[in-house]
């Protein structure tokens, strides 16, 4: 199995503050990796470094052996930020068509080839039925499905999903995770899934990348999410509580993932 993503001693500084303080991770092609940690842990910074929109101070990232930027066409990306389409009736299909080969020069004309590709990704995520309605009237779950479809354009080998579950209700969270799992089964793509809560992802992910204070540990769930290794990562006592199949990361003051959630 080839290495999809190789991160070596990655350090990133933003506005004079060191956000990532030496991340090491090696992710195999086809793996489903959940990326967790409290707000400010550097999850989005790591995503941006992988995409090549943030330059590291030192260390390196290789995407199938290529540096970010050169390797970025291998990556399908679902951003956290919402688009400002609330005042327009632009359809989900029109939005994805604009993204498809959007980096080319010329006018935004959708060739037959582009229309076919847009159709394909919409089918793949089950968003086709909603695709001709205005994006602005879609529900949160429908929008995320469209955004997932858009991330699948040009057949990426790595799918980077930045907090796709934020602002979804539990039912839509489960549906979206199901779609991602289905896409992965069909396309064999590598998945990097950033989330706050690991519980909804337990049955689909292979390994966990847990981030805190600019550091990270990568490994199987049991090895990473236990009191000992997380206490070491956080630098203060952390307790991992298991209740049946559920898992909770708590500090003395309260639930770490929960109290970091309000943003």
């Amino acid at each position: 199995m080839p290495t999809a993503l190789q991160i070596s001693d990655l350090r990133v500084t933003l506005g004079g503050t060191e956000i990532l303080t030496g991340i090491n991770a090696e992710i195999q092609a086809g793996e489903f990796v959940g990326i967790f940690g409290p707000n400010g842990a550097g999850k989005t910074t790591l995503v941006r470094a992988i995409l090549g929109t943030l330059r590291p101070v030192s260390g390196s990232i290789q995407i199938f052996g290529l540096p970010p930027g050169l390797g970025s066409h291998q990556i399908g990306y679902m951003p956290q930020e919402r688009t400002g389409l609330d005042l327009t009736a632009l359809s989900a299909r029109a939005m994805i068509a604009a993204v498809c080969q959007g980096e080319r020069w010329g006018v935004p004309w959708s060739s037959a080839e582009i229309r076919k590709e847009v159709d394909g990704v919409l089918q793949l995520t089950g968003a086709a039925a909603q695709a001709d309605r205005p994006f602005s009237v879609l529900s949160g779950g429908e929008r995320q499905r469209v955004m997932l479809a858009q991330a699948l354009l040009s057949n990426p080998k790595i799918l980077v999903l930045d907090e796709p579950l934020a602002s979804l209700d539990p039912r839509n969270q489960a549906l979206l995770i199901e779609s991602v799992a289905e896409v992965r089964r069909l396309t064999k793509t590598t998945v990097l899934f950033v989330a706050h809560d690991m519980n909804p992802l337990m049955h689909v992910m292979d390994r966990v990348l847990y981030m805190a204070w600019g550091g990270a540990i990568l490994g199987p769930l049991d090895q990473v999410v236990n009191s000992e290794s997380l206490s070491q990562l956080y630098g203060f006592p952390i307790e991992v509580v298991r209740a049946g199949e559920r898992i909770f990361v708590v500090s003395k003051e309260g639930n770490v993932t929960e109290c970091a959630h309000h943003d």
């Binding site: 090549g52 990556i75 990306y77 951003p79 604009a98 959007g102 980096e103 020069w105 010329g106």
Partner: peptide, 18 residues
């Protein structure tokens, strides 16, 4: 205009594609 529309609708994605 093709680049402009892409960057207007999905700025983070456009940035990621260089």
């Amino acid at each position: 205009s093709r680049r402009l529309l892409f960057a207007s609708l999905q700025p983070r994605l456009a940035e990621a594609r260089g």
